[in-house]
Design a protein around this nucleic acid. Sequence first.
RNA 1: GUAGCCAUAGCUCAGUUGGUUAGAGCAUCAGAUUGUGAUUCUGAGGGUCGUGGGUUCGAGCCCCAUUGGUUACCCCA
Length: 456
Amino acid sequence: MNNKPSIPQGTRDFPADVVRKRNYIFSTIRNVFELYSFEPLESPAMENLDTLMGKYGEEGDKLIFKILNNGINNEKNIEKSKAGFEKLLQGKNSSDITERALKYDLTIPFARYVAMNYTKLTFPLRRYQIQPVWRADRPQKGRYREFTQCDADVVGSLSLLNEVELANIYHEVFVRLGVKNYELKINSRKILTALAELCGGAAKMTDITIAIDKLDKIGLEKVKEELQQRGLNTEQIKTTESYLNISGNNEEKLSQIKSLIGKIDSGKQGIDEVEFLFNQTKNTNLSIDFTLARGLNYYTGIIFEVAAPKEVKMGSIGGGGRYDDLTGLFGVPNIPGVGISFGVDRIYDVMDEMNLFPDEVQVSTKALFFNMGEKESSVAFGIMQQLRSNGIASELYHESVKINKQFTYAEKKNIPFVIIIGSKEIEEKKCAVKQLATGNQEIIPFDKLADYLKNL
RNA sequence: GUAGCCAUAGCUCAGUUGGUUAGAGCAUCAGAUUGUGAUUCUGAGGGUCGUGGGUUCGAGCCCCAUUGGUUACCCCA
């Protein structure tokens, strides 16, 4: 008892009922992706470390799970290993110690795939991908070290219609799942660029976005303090403040942003993008939010973020955006793309908390055959196989034990029907079918059983 | 990486200013009931109180360390 088995921090086992609920989310998302003509892709759990490093910002790099090389203690490698370890201690990477890593998201590995295969691929390429990713983050509510992302991306097209479609996919999925009060926030990185130009130039972009992203968390005053710490002068802070004070409904926000940064080139472009998306999509949960920044530094145009319904305390449950030159990082320039991601684990937590899973999700075995003895169970076995060939999931209790034990088993497994075949029934070629929820029992001839159960 | 909280039976938790043999509910098993369950009744098993050290006549309780979990910050799905 002293060496209890355990699993790594932030990872989970999923028992049957959880798997069913998760599969319900997966299949809903997959169906919508397929409906919108996206095609599946899967990539390895691990990537070469240098494929991932430097793509997620400084913080992101720290959160990549690195895989220790094999054979570092091999005699002929010892010197290299020691030198490599010294590099690690200095905070650098060494391919002599680690050259592979678990993937951190699906977008960068996808960009790597496109760059590797662009001569064979047909563009625009619409792909979706549902796979686990890993982050060495400290786990907490709604945050896991292993979690699943569902991504849809369109690459090879600059058209804003892609953004419109992706916004519609968000809506379609959340409506199907019953998550009605989600909020789809949109903004454009170009608008943030324009703000940065007004406030000290492009170099200040990261500082400004990090600070304003925190607005709803820490409030205006704290954001201003942070901007000051990050080296903005009084006038620049004032400009940022009027930017942050933009409010009202979506139309009102648009007209206010126009007067603030509409004369700057990038600002005008960004506003046009947001306005186009807003006008084209029928998504009533869409909300223009100029404080939305998003951390991943490869975004260049429209950015998305999905906020969970306010009644549950949960961070974002999805996000995405346009990246104009992601494959450029891998030597293939000029392939623009735009994508979105669903965070299934958080969507699960939200739906579980809000009780949004339908009961049908849990039904698996439809009928349990009671084991009434050796001869009886061999007859039952034959009938059971007939049911199975009719597509009815069924099970024979594994041994002949007291009836109430078999009842308890059926109940625990949420099996709606039990079928009793004893010596009397065998003689009459009939069986007793009992519905557990109601207690109703009927006598059904063997050859009518499949039809009887199908209609229930 | 930083900080707070928690750790007692398979699970959820009680456990008084430190004081005899550490309790309850649920679950498990057996029986009332060998062809009709889930509400009932009876009984049983199961814990060196996360681990290591210290204070004390005496520690589940106090102190230190350590491990694991959890929440928040940073960042993010």
